[in-house]
Design a binder for these strands. Structure first.
Length: 315
DNA sequence: CGGTTTTGACCAGCGC
DNA sequence: GCGCTGGTCAAAACCG
C-alpha cells in the first residue's frame, strides 16, 4: 500500500498568512490556553491531547474541515495531511466581536460590497501538501490572484461554485518555507450540502497542460507581470532564473520524492511521544483511511500532474 | 451555451 | 491624508 504524504504538520496561525510568522518565532509567542493542554513539540509540529482534540474538532470546525473529510460507514475521517489549529483565544475574540456586531447591527439587509478586514470571518488555515489539495470535494471557482508581499508566490482566491449564494471562500498560497506545501485558508461556510460531483470541467483544462498554447501564453503574461512585482528579498518565480513552468514541474517532482521520506518522518514524530500528549495515527484514523487515500492519489496523478504558472486551476 | 481562468482595475482597511 | 496592501470585481478569452 502506498503511504501518502500526510505529515501532521499542525500549525497555529492567526488571521495573517504571512509566511514569516508561520514557523520562525511566531509560534513562540503563542499563549496557549491552559485547558487546551497541548504542547509545541518543535517549530513545525504540535502534539495535542485528547482534551484538545475534543475541543477543537467541534461541530463548528467540523463543518469547515468537511472538504478534507472522508465519510466511510458513517465515520468521519480527516482527509487532509495537515491540520492547522487556530488558538482558542482568537476564536473567542472573534466570537466576542461577532456578538458585539450583532448587538449593534441594524435590522436592514444591507450587505457591504467589501467585507471589513478587521472583523474578518472565522478562518481555518490548513497547511497541505499538493496531493491533499485534490482531496477537496467542493467545487471552487478562481476569481482572483494576487502577489503577496514577502512571498515569492502569489495567492489565489477561490469561491464556491456549487451554489450561487454560497459565501465559502478559499485562498491557496504556496508556502515559502516548505517547497510543495500549500497554505489553504477557508473563510465562511458552505450554505449547502457537498456536491456529489463537481461542476462542468469547461474552462478548466487549459491550465492543466503546460504544453498547450494557452498555458504558454499565460506563462508569458505572468512573467511580464512578475517583473513588476518585487518582494523584500527580491525573489520572484521569474528572477530565480527559470520560468514559472519549470519551477512548478521541478516542485512536483520533489513532492513525489518526498513522499517516500514522509512515512519515516511521521513515524519518528510519534515515536517516543507521551501517549497523553499525542494522538497517534491509529487513534485519529483507522486503517480504512489509507484505502481512501489510494483513490485520491490515483485521481491526483491523472488530473493534477500538470499545472499553470502558480497553482492548479481548480482542486 | 454554460462553465471556467486570467488579469487589470477598483475599493477599503491599515499603518505611518 | 497618503501610500501600501489584500480582497474582489468584471470583461475577455477560453474550453467541452
Amino acid at each position: 500500500m502506498m503511504i501518502m504524504d500526510w505529515g501532521l504538520q499542525a500549525v497555529v496561525i492567526g488571521s495573517s498568512t504571512s509566511c514569516s510568522d508561520h514557523f520562525h518565532g511566531g509560534n513562540n509567542n503563542i499563549d496557549f490556553s491552559p485547558n487546551l493542554d497541548f504542547q509545541e513539540s518543535d517549530h513545525k509540529y504540535l502534539s495535542f491531547s485528547h482534551e484538545m482534540k475534543k475541543e477543537f474538532f467541534s461541530d463548528e470546525l467540523e463543518e469547515l474541515y468537511k472538504p478534507f473529510y472522508h465519510v466511510d460507514g458513517g465515520q468521519n475521517m480527516l482527509m487532509g495531511s495537515s491540520i492547522s489549529l487556530i488558538p482558542k483565544e482568537i476564536i473567542k475574540e472573534e466570537k466576542r466581536e461577532e456578538e458585539q456586531q450583532q448587538a449593534v447591527a441594524p435590522t436592514s439587509t444591507y450587505v457591504p460590497k467589501y467585507k471589513k478586514r478587521k472583523n474578518e470571518q472565522k478562518r481555518v488555515v490548513l497547511q497541505l501538501k499538493a496531493d491533499d489539495l485534490s482531496s477537496d470535494k467542493w467545487a471552487w471557482r478562481k476569481y482572483g490572484q494576487k502577489p503577496i508581499k514577502g512571498s515569492p508566490y502569489p495567492r489565489s482566491y477561490y469561491r464556491c461554485s456549487s451554489s450561487k449564494g454560497c459565501l465559502a471562500r478559499k485562498q491557496v498560497e504556496q508556502s515559502c518555507t516548505e517547497t510543495g506545501t500549500f497554505i489553504v485558508t477557508y473563510t465562511a461556510e458552505h450554505n449547502h450540502s457537498q456536491p456529489t460531483r463537481r461542476n462542468s470541467l469547461a474552462g478548466t483544462i487549459k491550465s492543466k497542460f503546460p504544453n498547450s498554447k494557452n498555458t504558454i501564453n499565460s506563462h508569458k503574461k505572468n512573467i511580464v507581470k512578475n517583473e513588476k512585482i518585487s518582494s523584500p528579498h527580491g525573489l520572484t518565480s521569474n528572477n530565480l532564473g527559470f520560468s514559472p513552468e519549470t519551477l512548478m514541474i521541478d516542485e512536483f517532482r520533489e513532492i513525489e520524492i518526498n513522499q517516500e521520506n514522509d512515512h519515516e518522518e511521521i513515524k519518528n514524530m510519534f515515536e517516543g511521544s507521551d501517549e497523553n500528549e499525542c494522538v497517534s495515527i491509529q487513534e485519529m484514523f483507522d486503517g480504512d483511511f489509507f484505502a481512501g487515500l489510494e483513490d485520491i492519489h490515483d485521481g491526483f496523478s491523472s488530473s493534477f500532474g500538470c499545472n499553470n504558472s502558480t497553482f492548479p486551476s481548480s482542486f
